[in-house]
Design a binder for these strands. Structure first.
Lengths: 206, 206
DNA sequence: TAGATTGTTAATCGATTAACAATC
DNA sequence: TAGATTGTTAATCGATTAACAATC
């Protein structure tokens, strides 16, 4: 395994490759090539080979890649060859949908506990979870050494909630609030805001 | 307004600028600078000025940008100075959350009607909507000339649903299914898959 | 062997940044 | 006017692609 420093844009494509490989495997295939993978994803085969070569040599000349083997390697590189426990903060409609979502577990993540600050919600159920008091966030995160959080609170509460997560030792936050939040450089944040995508697309629609 | 061809990566940042400007305006500010905007977003001021210069001259030397004016210009460029009607296909937990989401309207989008193919759901309510039969998709889209869709069906139904949308004349699809779908080049697709973000972040977490 | 596909190099292409004249 | 910030140019930086020797 090479690396040293791999460009972040390359790392960001690995989950995409992994997802496609999983689909191929589910279709019963054993072998694929950079070309086939590229066609499925709309990415050039050269780019896929170059990206993978940052981490090692996973293919065979003349043959291609063994899907199971390459999946395993990518899971290991991305550190999803284990299951990460995740806390969910904010149990509105979206938080509830996330709490019920069955697609996390087999891709390396499991919602471990869920929190809200609304007294009317605390103690109620959502999916398989009992909603806990957001004031207990720190204690819960530290007791179970949780490193990853999903943030689904309203925009005006996002920064305060993120501060609490950082304070508690969280290392990665997936933020669903449509706002930018500030964290120390050691805490990674990624964002999901559907409206950004919609607005990007309408630019192109005549 | 210049353009001719603006790099897509630049277009993709405009919604981010617009969102930040709206926050600034909500905070009661009237004027901002490329530097202030950049700090808020973690983007260099030079990049912001360069991006904006692709579309015109919106600032004043020595002063900066009028927030209201720049917002208006960006909304016009992104074509969200109007409201786009959107169809939602797939009313599971996520679809339901989207149907209830109040944050679309003031950013240029309105869910107009929602569809599912499950006979048990058709006719039932979700938020302010009555769930319609996905078999009626084409008729509904064409009758009301809808151009934008959100797709929240399971992965194994995503391609078929997308095909139906394309067939009906949809021009932009926001796909929540964790899979790549294929459409003609004239139909734009963007994806939201939270697990891709989580896996990207765990690479960096020690 | 002949055909296919990798991993890698070098060339190309595109995006970001630094710097500054223009000017409010 | 003096100070500040734009819009733009040129330089830098980084990412993608094309091409091919290696080899399965």
């Amino acid at each position: 395994m090479r690396s040293s420093h791999v460009p972040d844009i390359v790392v960001g494509r690995l989950p995409l490759y992994l997802r496609a490989l999983n689909h191929m495997q589910a279709e019963g295939n054993e072998i694929t090539s950079s070309q086939e993978l590229g066609e499925r994803l709309g990415i050039s085969s050269a780019q896929i080979r170059k990206d993978l070569s940052q981490f090692g040599e996973f293919g065979k000349q003349g043959t291609g890649y063994n899907i199971g083997y390459l999946s395993d390697q990518l899971r290991s590189i991305l550190k999803v060859d284990r299951v990460w426990d995740v806390v969910l903060v904010g149990v509105g409609d979206l938080g509830r949908a996330l709490a019920n979502y069955a697609g996390f577990l087999d891709r390396g993540f499991r919602i471990y506990s869920i929190f809200d600050s609304d007294p009317k919600k605390i103690g109620k159920r959502a999916g398989d979870f009992t909603i806990q008091d957001a004031a207990e966030l720190r204690k819960a995160i530290q007791a179970d050494d949780i490193q990853v959080a999903m943030l689904a609170v309203p925009s005006d509460q996002a920064q305060a909630a993120a501060d609490a997560l950082v304070e508690a030792g969280i290392r990665a936050i997936l933020c669903y609030a449509p706002t930018s939040i500030t964290t120390p450089a050691s805490v990674r944040v990624e964002y999901i805001d559907p409206v950004l995508h919609l607005q990007h697309m309408t630019y192109h629609v005549v």
